[in-house]
């Protein structure tokens, strides 16, 4: 363990991803759910940047740039949906939203 290499970054990325996934599964508040999703996206970004750096290929960074853009758009739409949902149901709690059941 002399030098920080690719795998260190990747491990950080995996752990961050897992934290985000856990948040998506456990947390009940839709907003926090969204934040967990952002965490997962960021974990992917970190992995991409690390690969880009250590493989000497700038394409990964361009991909990250695009992901950030799409994530921003997605957050905008998602939050708009949450607002619309709240207007109808007066809740941001996932357990109250069981319309996925027949």
């Amino acid at each position: 363990m002399s030098h920080i290499g690719l795998q260190h970054y990747l491990i950080v990325s995996v752990l961050l991803f897992s934290i985000g996934l856990l948040g998506v599964i456990i947390r009940r508040n839709v907003l926090v759910l969204y934040m967990s999703l952002e965490l997962m996206l960021n974990a992917a970004n970190l992995a991409l940047v690390a690969f880009s750096r250590f493989k000497n290929n700038l394409d990964g960074q361009i991909m990250v740039l695009f992901i950030i853009t799409v994530a921003a758009a997605e957050v905008a739409v998602g939050l708009a949906l949450i607002v619309a949902l709240y207007r109808r149901r007066q809740t941001t709690h996932v357990e109250d939203l069981t319309t996925l059941k027949l």
């Binding site: 030098h3 690719l6 990747l10 880009s52 750096r53 250590f54 000497n56 290929n57 700038l58």
Partner: peptide, 17 residues
């Protein structure tokens, strides 16, 4: 990741973003 030693041999990173 650990098993495959993904980072080995790539340590001479010098890409500037």
């Amino acid at each position: 990741i650990w098993q495959t030693k993904l980072g080995d041999g790539l340590d001479s990173a010098h890409l500037e973003g």
